[in-house]
Design a protein around this nucleic acid. Structure first.
Lengths: 333, 333
DNA sequence: TTGAAAGCGCTAACAC
DNA sequence: GTGTTAGCGCTTTCAA
């Protein structure tokens, strides 16, 4: 293994000169720098991460807490993860993947494996929030708990997303709305995004004097069919539907077609999902985009910026949703 | 920050005693052990990972190379990842997630961030294989390149999976078969599993004197429709279909129904997918299960075992697929 | 602009 | 069964 001393010897300088040439933390003469760089290249030197962490108290690794819980959309999760890893990589950081809560957080942080944390799948009253706040590590939540304490948060503004979807339908003349949303188990544990989506949707509808039925939907064919059938049976007056459930989405569309409900002729539909999901469906959907990759990347950027400043105040950033127009919404006569 | 010297002082012993009490690498008297453990608990001590890595040349971190390339089933990927992380965690290892090839491998390995590597999304002639083989780090591929060199491999035996699916249909009397498989881009880069699946399927069919059409399928509604339509147009004689494409699957089923082809009355269908995917469909599918979580876990176990033995020979482990009987295959009159 | 040297916190010989 | 101590490879202060 090549060490910094090998490089120093090869370049005819000392350890510290190599170190400073690498970090740029003090001026190095052009000539010396050249020699050092040549030595590094010739010996194919790579600093030892552990030694670096020990000496500098910085690992350049961020921990990503991604509990893989049932009912969440894997596609969305993957995009968040991809965004976090990409964003971190651009700043010279690597990502340690933590999937279980049982001690994984404390192990990674307390043993100084990571400099900071990104936490996914946040609940309204997430028990991890106080624990994370006690930790000294900078933390960014993807999601928005009721009380973020000193933690930074970033997410799509799902409340606004719910509003936007409702408003789009209302402005098209619909007054009887329904949301086929997250599975019951996700709602029951008050997963942050599901709560906020529901709230934005129902409140916007109420504000406009429209009705808003909310139907939790299981992520499966049968869940989709059950919700559609229940919708038609219990809320036959509904003409505008929002679907926020990636797995159920194709089956909802299929079931409606099967029952002779045409989109958008009989029913207007808006999906809330990433772009690629919308694009994989049978019809050109009008949708509220979930820019998951961008949000993941933003999480990394916020975290790493905080790492630089040290004492920066926590911030909450909610990305404004946008509507992607398709052909699944029609103005009501 | 609490260090091992704090613990030693608190327990009235020396550094090395604490270290050995922790590692178990030399006998400690019951009384001393008790005192050390109490001190550790009271001070809530956690060894510094970097210091440990530096002194022992072991990070207890494995790198997971998971390029998120287009066309692969995210659900399957996620399950592999979950399995790898779980398996590693059980052995006291953490997982560093690497998603891009550009230098990520060499950075993580050459700077001693990881002890070993798990590599996903392997192609038949994967350019990373020789590079990985040159590396000294133990490596396990999830997949099977044409020439694994000195690397260990683990995967579902996709060739056998293809055979099994074909044989199941053939034993039910079908002689005209088709495979709606991976997208063209996946096949074109000769992704290991797709190649092997196709080979097993076509060879088994040929052996039994059956015909086997192979139709690459895009992971979208339109891709599924295109493949089904092409199937019915170009191969109207087909009575047995295998679908190996998670996103397309529901749309394939939907399209067949829409065109009045009943399953299994008119057409028998076997899906190749994880259990949860099969369970989310509209009908009780007969399927060849992809036990992705188990395979991921196996990859970690193999890797960590090799890490222990040091000089173990590389091994190739192909998990035998099994058929999960549903109601989508019917014997041909 | 560069060098010398003191650690960072731990492991693992080598003593006893 | 336990203590002493020499590093592991790096960063960073202090000197020059």
């Amino acid at each position: 293994m090549t060490t910094i001393d090998d490089v120093a010897r090869h370049a005819g300088v000392t350890r510290s000169t190599v170190s400073y040439a690498l970090s740029g933390k003090r001026p190095i003469s052009a000539e010396t720098r050249r020699r050092v760089e040549r030595a590094i290249a010739e010996l194919d030197y790579r600093p030892h991460a552990g030694a670096r962490a020990l000496a500098s108290a910085r690992t350049h690794v961020i921990g990503l807490l991604a509990p893989l819980r049932p009912g969440v959309d894997v596609n969305v999760i993957m995009q968040f993860v991809a965004g976090v890893v990409t964003g971190a990589g651009e700043e010279g950081y690597d990502v340690l993947l933590l999937t279980q809560d049982d001690g994984a957080i404390s192990r990674a942080t307390r043993s100084s494996m990571v400099d900071a944390l990104v936490v996914m799948d946040v609940e309204a009253d997430d028990p991890r929030v106080p624990a994370l706040d006690d930790l000294r590590q900078p933390t960014v939540l993807i999601g928005l708990p009721r009380d973020p304490r000193g933690l930074s948060c970033v997410d799509l503004d799902f409340e606004r997303a719910g509003s936007l979807a409702a408003e789009r339908l209302i402005s098209a003349g619909h007054r009887r709305l329904a949301l086929l949303g997250s599975p019951d188990e996700v709602l029951r544990r008050h997963t942050s995004y599901a709560d906020r989506m529901t709230r934005g949707f129902t409140e916007s509808a109420a504000r406009a004097g429209a009705t808003a039925a909310v139907l939790p939907t299981d992520p499966s064919f049968h869940g989709a069919v059950a919700s559609v059938d229940r919708l038609l049976a219990e809320h036959p007056e509904v003409t505008g539907v929002v679907v926020h459930n990636e797995v159920a989405l194709p089956h909802v569309i299929g079931r409606l077609r099967e029952l002779g409900r045409r989109i958008p002729d009989d029913l207007s539909l808006i999906a809330v999902c990433p772009e690629n999901t919308a694009a994989a469906q049978s019809i050109a959907l009008t949708s509220v985009e979930i820019p998951a990759v961008a949000i993941g990347r933003l999480a990394s950027e916020m975290l790493i910026r905080r790492l630089g400043q040290g004492d920066a105040l926590p911030e909450v950033r909610l990305v404004s949703p946008r509507i992607v127009e398709g052909e699944s919404v029609r103005a009501r006569a």
